[in-house]
Design a protein around this nucleic acid. Structure first.
Length: 254
DNA sequence: ATGGCGCGCGCAGCGCGA
């Protein structure tokens, strides 16, 4: 199974990129974030015509998640159970015997913002839920835009980003707490190029200069980590006209 | 110099992202 996560920054604008990319890569499951579209306006027909089942949970202007799968989608869950949240950031499904959780973790804005505290609370609730999901599903995949660069090697300029949002120690501690549950960062199961990132600012020619962060992740339970054959960032869509500011991250699991 | 770019919304220019 080829499984991907991609923050598309508007499903409407990026639909041609997404459909081309699915056709070229033959991806089996892709989890999207920042679809920024109410469910009534989601481009379901175009995606189904490409051979995918699709589920989505969206809202106007902000947030929004979707999961596309070539195999049937079952047991859809929207949001973190027991965590009241107006923002559409979480979608979980089962495909075959694999549980797949798609996350758009809050950005946090800055470490002194109310939004940062919301992010930390959100991550606390996520960890408790993931502990329960791991107990129920030996084959668990947790993917998405985590809005956390786990280590300094995931940051183009660690000094400039030190203690800033996306890189702060409390955020990184929450990321490590997920790993401590028994999840593996699929990207770090393999040798990777130096300076591998998944997001680059639209400004300052940041992509051309590779001024990025690795904030989009694929976490795998032990049973799936053992079957994981590769995990890569696909920079190709970031080079297109009107790209998302994020690149897809892709894992192949036997 | 605290902007820069690109999105949605909606028709001007603002909030937000990361």
């Amino acid at each position: 199974m080829k499984l991907a996560t991609w923050n598309v920054n508007s499903i409407k604008v990026r639909l041609p990129h997404l459909l081309d990319w699915l056709s070229q890569t033959q991806t089996d499951v892709v989890c999207l974030q920042e679809t920024k579209t109410e469910d009534a306006n989601f481009p379901r027909t175009e995606i189904e015509a490409a051979g995918y089942q699709v589920v989505f949970a969206g809202q106007k202007t902000y947030n929004g998640v979707a999961i596309l799968s070539r195999e049937p989608i079952k047991a859809v869950q929207v949001g973190i159970p027991g965590f009241a949240d107006e923002q559409k950031r979480v979608l979980a499904v089962t495909v075959g015997d694999t549980r797949i959780v798609d996350l758009y973790v809050p950005n946090g804005q800055s470490v002194d913002s109310d939004k940062y505290q919301y992010k930390l609370n959100w991550l606390e609730a996520l960890a408790a839920w993931m502990k329960a999901e791991l107990a129920q599903y030996p084959k668990l995949v947790v993917v998405g835009d985590f809005n956390i660069a786990p280590e300094d090697r995931d940051v183009h300029d660690p000094a400039a980003w030190q203690d800033q949002v996306l890189c702060s120690e409390p955020e990184r501690a929450h990321f490590r707490a997920l790993l401590d549950l028994g999840l593996k960062d699929a990207f770090r199961l393999f040798e990777q190029p130096e300076k591998s990132y998944s997001w680059w600012d639209y400004r300052q020619g940041a992509f051309r200069r590779n001024m990025g962060l690795r904030i989009d992740h694929i976490l795998l339970s032990e049973a799936l980590a053992q079957r994981c054959q590769s995990c890569t960032v696909d920079n190709a869509p970031r080079k297109l006209e009107r790209p998302s500011d994020h690149a897809p991250v892709v894992a192949e699991i036997a």
